[in-house]
Design a protein around this nucleic acid. Sequence first.
DNA 1: ACAAAAGTGTTGTACTTACACCCATGA
DNA 2: TCATGGGTGTAAGTACAACACTTTTGT
Lengths: 241, 241
Amino acid sequence: MDDYDPHGFPPFAVTVDMVVFTIRRSRLQIVLIRRGAAPFEGAWALPGGFVRVDEDLEDAARRELAEETGITTAPSFLTQLRTYGSPDRDPRMRVVSVAWWAIMPISTHPVAGSDAASTELIDVDDVTAGRIELAFDHRLIVSDALEALGDRLETTTLATSFWTEEFRISDLRRIYETVWGVELEPGNFQRKVRRVPGWLQPTGRRAPTTEGGRPAELFRAEPGLRPLTPPLRRRPGPDPR
Amino acid sequence: MDDYDPHGFPPFAVTVDMVVFTIRRSRLQIVLIRRGAAPFEGAWALPGGFVRVDEDLEDAARRELAEETGITTAPSFLTQLRTYGSPDRDPRMRVVSVAWWAIMPISTHPVAGSDAASTELIDVDDVTAGRIELAFDHRLIVSDALEALGDRLETTTLATSFWTEEFRISDLRRIYETVWGVELEPGNFQRKVRRVPGWLQPTGRRAPTTEGGRPAELFRAEPGLRPLTPPLRRRPGPDPR
DNA sequence: ACAAAAGTGTTGTACTTACACCCATGA
DNA sequence: TCATGGGTGTAAGTACAACACTTTTGT
């Protein structure tokens, strides 16, 4: 930084973009908004916007999420993804965007239909498969965020951040299946997550049986985030043909 | 981004900072420069500087590394770390810095003493332990980069990027030991890395024996980067007391 | 012969997948 | 009774750490 020049620095705009994951009807979804102005007017886009000059980047992410979507509950998890700054990513000017990803607890998904009329929850599959067009490089950002989420599920207790209330082990399993796009053995999954000391706290209650079958035990998640030892491996074990 | 305002956006400076790892005399080191101007004049700092207005972020990182350190060989690995943008991280103005980390091959470490007189290779330990003071939040950036490096060694074949030429398996083991700060069983390590198909390519040659002992086989690394299956786990296996 | 590093063998334990099987409920 | 999902048992295979042991060089 020897060539530092406080008065002649190039003019950059700095924005934040947010990928907010939630689960609805066993489907992994993200929060999107409809753009009201050019470019990409009418297209779907991630919530986000300008960072203020005295504002921390993470604060900006939280603020823009609340302002643009009407979501008032704080995400149960929020972390930086990476920064996207290709010179041509915005047709009008040079924009560097710091992307974040987050998890919204499931109990708070009256999101769609909130006061922000243009806010919707969209299936991640529809985005990654290209059935939904996103503005700017937002489709790439969503792919990267999905990758990061999948990685964190392997090594940390993050998955339970999708609930503030009770859940069944099969609910937890469906998170993993949805994010990883695989099917997991119910029995083996059960044992693995139960073995993690302290993660799943028994409530003593049982779920009402909905489609037949033995009622499931209900658990509450340990608060906070911890590394999983051993990790829940994504790849189906060793398979060196 | 509905409140997009091309003419009134807040004035941000965007910089890049680089953490460039290399190994010298079995010690993990990073490239640092001496600052020639205020603030932090005379202090150590990471190479880095302003992103140009039409320049890709990664290109800026490579350019600043070359300009500030005189290092002409391209790093064998370069990836984004994260972005640091606390409002008070630079006392003069609002700066958002996109941090990167990289690996320099060992054979190219005539770096210290190159034409950039202020460039030095410094032990990472001296930085993380606070024996060397760094400008701005650069000590935090180094810690985060070290963490990221350790993680990648677990799951990818990245470690061999430290060499362009031949190396011994014990050289490779010392990388892991240095970055993770642990001692590894030579025999077990040997088997694990040999088991990865394609990673270590035999050259048929043997190292001259330096301190006695059977001469080691010399290997060359497979080009590119691959996931390690199974990963080389950092934690000493399962140990649930 | 001895020291030292390279590399292999072996054993007991942990973890995994696959799949059989039992449990507890509603219809 | 049957269907269904919840949950446990079990066996074969993989990976692991620990450590003994053999190999191959220099002195």
